[in-house]
């Protein structure tokens, strides 16, 4: 079976984002970019399914500026077989991305689409769910365990205070949570081999998708700094304040 794995290029998780002085956004010029960490987990899961013999082909997709091909190369170095870059300079948001993915799913007909649960830049946590909604296919978000058998996939999902198990008919959409797996390194030999794997380049227009964003950014600001509170003299006073003033216990 075929798996589609969408991946996003974001500011590397080790970098502290810096708000631009003019408040128009977060500085990305000259900033180290990497594959969204949840997407790495998604790629890893697809590769593990392939190693188990469940999956025969993994197609990685990225939507964005030309540099996103670096992210696709990483996905292929991790084990994706080929990739598709949907090139656009328009700001992407989950709705437009889900529409592009829907068009690609209709073209590629994968049995499984595995996405990261959220991108660490806009923290939307929506694309997988929206793709499932647009396709009218079942979804399992925040997966911590995935098992494919007999034309269905059983997914353990992380929910508040525990976990939930659902069984989905294929084709289905899964979004990966942190504990699903620990992604492998893209090793140097595999990075070298990935240079030769095929990458198709298309545009949203080729797929007939209108990318116009629905959300516009009015401004971006640094969060207010926390201020020092008060010093107390006793444990008794602390407990009383936590109970009566802060109301957290």
């Amino acid at each position: 079976m075929k798996v589609l794995v969408p991946v996003k290029r974001v500011i590397d998780y080790n970098i502290k984002p810096r708000v631009k002085a003019d408040g128009s956004g977060v500085e990305t010029a000259g900033v180290k970019m990497s594959m969204n960490p949840f997407d790495e987990i998604a790629v890893e899961e697809a590769v593990r399914l392939k190693e188990k013999g469940v999956v025969s082909e993994i197609v990685a997709v990225s939507i964005g500026e030309p540099k996103a091909q670096d992210t696709l190369r990483t996905a292929m170095a991790m084990g994706a077989d080929r990739s598709i870059l949907v090139e656009t300079d328009v700001v992407t948001e989950p709705l437009s991305v889900a529409k592009v993915l829907k068009a690609l799913v209709e073209k590629e007909k994968p049995d499984l689409i595995i996405l990261g649960k959220q991108a660490i830049d806009d923290d939307m946590n929506a694309t997988g769910q929206m793709l499932a909604g647009l396709l009218g296919r079942p979804q399992a978000t925040f997966a911590s365990r995935v098992e494919v058998a007999d034309g269905a996939v059983t997914v353990t999902r992380e929910i508040d205070g525990g976990s939930q198990t659902v069984k989905l008919a294929l084709p289905a959409i899964i979004t990966a949570d942190l504990r699903l797996n620990e992604p492998r390194y893209a090793s140097l030999p595999n990075i070298m081999k990935a240079r030769k794997k095929p990458m198709e380049k298309i545009t949203p227009a080729d797929l007939g998708v209108d990318m116009t964003p629905r959300l516009s950014v009015v401004s971006v600001a640094e969060p207010p700094e926390r201020k020092a509170g008060i010093k107390l003299d006793s444990a008794a006073e602390l407990v009383s304040r936590l109970r009566n003033e802060a109301k957290v216990i």
């Binding site: 970098i15 010029a29 000259g30």
Partner: peptide
Amino acid sequence: EGAGGPNYPGG
């Protein structure tokens, strides 16, 4: 291990 160390930003 490779990739470790500082990540000096643009500028």
